[in-house]
Computed example of a mutant assay.
Amino acid sequence: MKLLIVNPNISQSVTELIEAEARRTASPGTELTLRTAALGVAYIETRAEAAIGAYATLNELADHFSGHDAAVVAAFGDPGLEAAREMLPIPVVGLTESALMSAAMLGGKIGIVAISRRIRAWYAEPVVRYGMTSRLAVIRCLDEPLANIGSVQQDKGEQLVALCEAAIRDDGADVLIIAGAPLAGLARSVAQRIPVPVVDGVSCAVQQAELLSHLGPAKATAGSYAAPPAKGAKGLSPALGQLIGRGDVQ
Rank of each mutant, 00 (worst) to 15 (best):
N7G: 08
N7R: 08
S11D: 06
E16M: 02
E19L: 13
R23P: 06
R24F: 02
T25Q: 02
A26D: 10
S27V: 03
L34M: 15
R35P: 00
R35N: 03
A37P: 05
E45S: 14
R47C: 03
E49N: 01
A50R: 02
A51F: 05
A54P: 06
A56H: 00
A56Y: 00
L61C: 05
L61R: 09
L61F: 15
F65G: 01
V73F: 05
A75Q: 08
A75W: 04
E82T: 08
A83G: 12
P89C: 05
I90C: 08
V92Q: 05
E97Q: 15
E97T: 02
A99H: 12
M101G: 01
S102K: 07
A103N: 09
A114S: 15
A114Y: 01
I119N: 05
A121M: 04
A124Y: 13
V127Y: 13
R129P: 07
T133Q: 14
R135I: 00
L146H: 10
A147N: 10
N148R: 14
V152T: 13
V152K: 09
Q153H: 02
D155Q: 14
K156F: 15
G157I: 13
V161W: 09
C164T: 02
C164W: 01
E165C: 02
R169P: 02
A173K: 13
V175C: 02
I177E: 08
A179K: 01
G180R: 01
A181D: 01
P182H: 09
P182Y: 11
G185Y: 05
A187C: 03
S189G: 00
V190E: 03
A191F: 04
P195N: 08
P197A: 12
D200L: 07
A209Y: 10
L211V: 09
L212D: 00
L215Q: 13
A220P: 14
Y225L: 15
A233E: 11
L240H: 04
Q242R: 15
L243M: 09
I244H: 00
